[in-house]
Design a protein around this nucleic acid. Structure first.
Lengths: 206, 206
DNA sequence: AACTTTGTTGACACTTTTGTCAAAGATTTT
DNA sequence: AAAATCTTTGACAAAAGTGTCAACAAAGTT
């Protein structure tokens, strides 16, 4: 249904359309190792168009990945670079990251699997990011710790904890749905409470 | 070097040897979609032996996965089923899970990717686990919350948090090594502190 | 030691997947 | 509207991966 009507030309940009659908298939649906045929079917185009526009499957993947990375970093920067309070920044990170993870749960997974097993392109693919914003955030965190509002630990670990607490349960959700003895309703309510539970865990006196 | 000498018969059980090596390749090295040739090379045997002993690649994978799952559940049960204090149980879970994750970081990842995208075998592969132990643990957690020793939240979320805080950073470590502006030494020390930091985060007054 | 069973090997066939290319169809430019 | 350019398509070739099989080798049994 979402497939492009065949021969429906130029009302959409085919190239962009393919990338967009590939991002969905890879990072939302989770078919990280979809074949070119699967990608083409999903996008509703002929397989050869992938080669025409991107040269190879790998280059399409790189393109999709780069776009994901860019938009993810942008949304992080928006929070970290703001003038909000530390508490609001933490809440903002939780919020932003939750949204992102729910939309693209497999993006993180790709970072791990493919990146570690594909020996090449290690250096180029990742640029150090948000150095200044991060240093600044660490400092603010440290101040809150000194003030007793945040459990004392290395600010880096604190930062990592935010992402851990948000990301992991979302990634594992389909698995948890099966192993834990709960109805979908119960599970939903559990997951809905998480944002607040996390925030309360990360901030002592709120 | 670790490869079996060719023709070196019966000093080791070839079948077990292949499974053991496959577990390493899949869940420690991270080659979740290794070809039969890669598996065979890694184990130092001829590729056809995989078919001889296991019938198909899938069956070898299932076997490796089942063994992993079994040992993982066993180590969890050992902690949850013990008579230790809640604090010690939480510390034990952190410890056990850290060890497991460091040894087989890709086991969790498989649970997500393959399991969600491979439509078949959803039901059979996972059995509900540790129901009684878990219910009991929830109850103990709740008591500690009531006593004010643990931040108040749903015990399920608390339980999930333990695994989130341990697992996610280990999974992401290779990625973090590159994006964060730290030396290996700094990163190591950060990760070493984590166990205590996590425990302190999860228990208020310790 | 002959026989049977178990283990190992290389060759082959089959399937899946990727990428190329020439031809056909559309769109834009002149 | 003719020419040039861009887009789409099906057919083909090449590569990679999986499983089967018959033959050979080793170990165990009688």
């Amino acid at each position: 249904m979402s497939a492009r009507a065949a021969g429906n030309l130029k009302d959409v940009n085919t190239e962009e359309h393919i990338v967009a659908q590939a991002k969905q298939l890879f990072f939302a649906v989770g078919k990280l190792s979809a074949s070119t045929q699967e990608i083409a079917d999903f996008a509703g185009v002929k397989r050869t168009l992938i080669n025409y526009y991107f040269g190879s499957k790998q280059k399409l993947f790189d393109r999709a990945f780069d776009e994901m990375r860019y938009s993810f970093n942008a949304s992080l920067s928006e929070v970290l670079g703001s003038i909000a309070s530390v508490y609001d920044k933490v809440a903002g990170l939780i919020d932003t990251f939750t949204t992102f993870m729910e939309q693209y749960p497999y993006f993180n997974i790709f970072l791990i699997t493919e990146l570690n097993t594909t020996k090449k392109r290690k250096k180029e693919i990742i640029q150090r990011y948000q150095r200044q914003e991060l240093e600044n955030f660490y400092m603010e965190i440290q101040q809150e710790m000194d003030a007793g509002n945040i459990p004392k630990m290395d600010p880096f670990n604190y930062y990592v904890n935010i992402f851990s607490l948000v990301s992991y349960p979302i990634i594992m959700r389909p698995y948890y749905d099966r192993i834990f003895n709960m109805t979908k309703k119960e599970m939903d309510s559990m997951y809905q409470k998480r944002k607040q539970d996390i925030l309360r865990l990360l901030f002592i006196n709120q």
